[in-house]
């Protein structure tokens, strides 16, 4: 059994959106809180991309994201692209039904491996 270290290492606050960054051994857990749209997107994008290094293993916890706009979807996709470019892995967890539906309908969900919980997300990481 993996013991999870839930200590919050960083907390970044943007307009309508907060990002927490935690490290659990070699896995980085990015938690988004709030609404991800064109207003918060540019800065969030920078911060998320900064948190990605080569061989990164990222868990993206979306359980506190209630709304994501088209610009928000693009931030996620960019993150995915950057991680894959660096031979890293990303697993998304905590998707609300509505957010998941929007991602599915617009085709964005196809890019991501999803998991029901953080624990499952970490386990899904090879």
């Amino acid at each position: 059994m993996v013991a999870l270290n839930q200590k919050v290492n960083y907390r970044l606050i943007f307009e309508m959106l907060e990002v927490t960054i935690e490290q659990d051994r070699d896995v980085t857990i990015l938690g988004l809180h709030g609404e991800l749209d064109s207003q918060s997107a540019p800065e969030v994008r920078e911060q998320l991309l900064n948190a990605v290094h080569s061989d990164s293993k990222i868990v993206l916890d979306m359980s506190n994201v209630s709304y994501m706009s088209s610009a928000g979807l693009r931030v996620l996709l960019l993150l995915y692209r950057r991680i894959r470019e660096n031979v890293g892995q990303i697993v998304v967890t905590g998707l609300h039904d509505e957010v998941r539906d929007v991602m599915a309908i617009t085709g964005f969900l196809d890019f991501f491996v999803t998991a029901k919980s953080r624990r499952e997300a970490i386990m899904a990481m090879s």
Partner: peptide, 10 residues
């Protein structure tokens, strides 16, 4: 949500 463009492309 103004996402009709992405939905049609999908």
């Amino acid at each position: 949500l103004g996402m009709q463009s992405d939905e049609l492309k999908a």
